[in-house]
Amino acid sequence: MRRIRLLWRILKITHADKLLFGFLVYFILTSIMIYLVEPNIQTVGDSLWYCFAASTTIGFGDIVAVTLLGRVLTVILCIYAVLIIALIPGVVVSYFIEFNKIKSKESVVVFLDQLEHLETLSKEELRELSQKVKQRRYRL
């Protein structure tokens, strides 16, 4: 549950939540329109199933669009879905990379500040600083 909240927070910070909501609204509207124009689709559930299969590019083939409007709506839905499926993970990964860069820069700044003020550090702080230097040396 914590990870889902974190993901949601990232989506809100980066405004990708608006893209996701836009896709969901378009998905539902397309499902309703497909239901209204396609003779092979008898229920809204079948229309939702068709749109899901099309948008995930699975395309089972159990239900197909036969009208021009149904096919155009399906193409737009598929393109929109591919863009959203590619964009959301990219936004999350980019956010985490930037977050880690900032976190790393902050720790380096604190480290350099401690090095500049060695004379003001206590013996315990000097020991901790020495341990950090040793750990960094062994990582390289």
Rank of each mutant, 00 (worst) to 15 (best):
R5G: 10
L7H: 08
L7T: 07
W8M: 15
W8I: 15
I13A: 11
L20S: 03
F23I: 08
Y26C: 12
L29Q: 01
T30K: 08
S31F: 03
Y35I: 08
V37S: 06
N40G: 13
Q42I: 13
Q42W: 11
T43H: 07
G45V: 14
D46G: 14
F52R: 12
A54H: 00
S55A: 10
S55N: 05
T57W: 09
T57L: 12
F60L: 15
G61L: 06
D62R: 14
I63S: 04
T67C: 06
L69N: 06
L69D: 05
G70D: 05
L73S: 01
L73C: 00
V75I: 14
I76W: 07
C78P: 01
V82C: 13
V82T: 09
I85L: 14
I85K: 13
I88W: 02
P89W: 05
P89L: 09
V91Y: 02
V91G: 06
V92Q: 04
V93S: 04
S94P: 01
Y95P: 03
Y95G: 04
Y95Q: 05
I97Y: 04
E98Y: 11
F99L: 15
N100V: 04
K103G: 07
K105Q: 13
K105H: 09
L112Q: 07
L112M: 11
L115S: 03
L118R: 03
E119A: 10
S122D: 04
K123C: 02
E125H: 01
E125R: 06
E128R: 11
L129V: 00
K132P: 00
V133A: 03
V133F: 02
Q135S: 08
R136Y: 01
R136Q: 04
R136K: 11
R139K: 15
